[in-house]
Computed example of a mutant assay.
Amino acid sequence: MTQMSKTTVAWYLLAPMMIIIVGVAGYPLIKTVYFSFTAAHLVSPDTSDQWVGLTNFLKALGNAKFRSSIGNTVYFVVFSVSAEILLGVLVALLLNQEFHGRTLLRALVILPLALPTVVNAMMWRLIYGPDFGALNALLTQVGLLAEYRSWLGDPSSALTMVALADIWKNFPLVALITLAALQTISRDHLEAALLDGANAWQRFWHVVFPAIVAPVSVALVLRTIEAFKVFDIIYVMTRGGPASSTKTVSFHVYQEAFAYMRVGSGASYALIVVLISAALIAVYLKLLQRQGETA
């Protein structure tokens, strides 16, 4: 079989999948781009033909609520992803040690990751409850709180509490990826470093860290992308409130397009989110490429 025929067969095999991808992802993307330049409204279908050019994008960039949602999203991403990476690495280092019950503990760590996001959100909403919440009960019994507090009803704490719920669910992913990388480290290298007089920090920095930095970087990329487009946990726990303090960009897009039914402006918001996400991905891929070249 010639090289050309192999290529032809490959294209024939890939064709069904490519057709599905174009139909499922390509067509909606094209329609979103089109609607972003129109005054499309769900109540008035005829408005989808009213061309407005860049008006939707200019209004989006000048919308104070949209800029605020970007700020909320950045805070959520930085806080949750940083905590997930730190907690995941620490838990992986613990689970990599030899101790009785390690297998059971490894299984328990996976449980939050196995929970559906909606179930996780509902569970934490009950924990944060202002009347019968377990968190208020615990903190008042140990003397850290004088009275029950509405954690999700306070604009100063709501987004942080939602982020903590997200951290609890997703840090096991980082822990599992890091633990898999730790299993590849030769004990001979650690023992050699110990014989050379290296302390625990020096062994971690010079032996362990180089082995886990690439997998942890991949986890960082995955979690940043997922955290930036967070929607479901916000929708279930707070609906973007109170006073829009937990409204993220994805929730803002949802409200604009489906709650207010302004499809045109909602599409422009969605494209801005896509462009920001693409920029983040490009930066991460560049950093990973540089890391691979220096490794």
Results as ranks from 00 to 15, higher is better:
residue 110 I to E: 14
residue 118 V to Q: 05
residue 119 V to T: 14
residue 86 L to T: 14
residue 116 P to G: 05
residue 107 A to H: 06
residue 76 F to S: 05
residue 56 N to K: 06
residue 62 G to Q: 07
residue 90 L to H: 04
residue 41 H to F: 12
residue 51 W to G: 05
residue 94 L to N: 09
residue 67 R to V: 12
residue 43 V to P: 00
residue 50 Q to V: 13
residue 101 G to V: 04
residue 102 R to P: 07
residue 105 L to F: 13
residue 91 V to G: 02
residue 51 W to L: 10
residue 109 V to Q: 04
residue 118 V to C: 06
residue 86 L to R: 03
residue 119 V to D: 05
residue 46 D to Y: 03
residue 92 A to Q: 11
residue 44 S to W: 13
residue 91 V to I: 12
residue 55 T to R: 15
residue 44 S to E: 13
residue 74 V to Q: 09
residue 95 L to H: 08
residue 115 L to V: 13
residue 120 N to K: 01
residue 92 A to L: 10
residue 111 L to A: 10
residue 41 H to S: 12
residue 115 L to K: 04
residue 60 A to M: 10
residue 111 L to D: 09
residue 67 R to P: 00
residue 59 K to R: 14
residue 48 S to Y: 13
residue 83 A to E: 00
residue 92 A to T: 11
residue 89 V to M: 10
residue 49 D to C: 01
residue 46 D to S: 12
residue 65 K to P: 00
residue 78 V to Q: 07
residue 65 K to S: 15
residue 120 N to I: 00
residue 93 L to A: 08
residue 103 T to C: 03
residue 57 F to Q: 06
residue 99 F to M: 12
residue 44 S to I: 14
residue 119 V to G: 05
residue 88 G to S: 11
residue 49 D to P: 00
residue 105 L to W: 11
residue 95 L to I: 10
residue 79 F to R: 00
residue 60 A to K: 03
residue 77 V to G: 08
residue 42 L to D: 13
residue 75 Y to N: 03
residue 76 F to L: 13
residue 75 Y to G: 04
residue 84 E to N: 07
residue 68 S to E: 15
residue 108 L to E: 03
residue 113 L to T: 06
residue 50 Q to N: 14
residue 46 D to T: 10
residue 55 T to M: 11
residue 99 F to D: 14
residue 96 N to S: 11
residue 62 G to W: 04
residue 93 L to S: 06
residue 74 V to Y: 07
residue 70 I to M: 15
residue 67 R to W: 07
residue 109 V to H: 02
residue 107 A to Q: 12
residue 94 L to K: 11
residue 51 W to F: 15
residue 91 V to T: 09
residue 91 V to H: 01
residue 114 A to V: 03
residue 116 P to K: 00
residue 83 A to P: 00
residue 78 V to G: 07
residue 56 N to I: 08
residue 90 L to A: 13
residue 51 W to N: 06
residue 106 R to F: 04
residue 43 V to D: 11
residue 90 L to F: 08
residue 77 V to K: 04
residue 102 R to F: 04
residue 58 L to V: 14
residue 67 R to M: 13
residue 54 L to R: 03
residue 117 T to H: 00
residue 95 L to P: 02
residue 64 A to P: 05
residue 92 A to W: 06
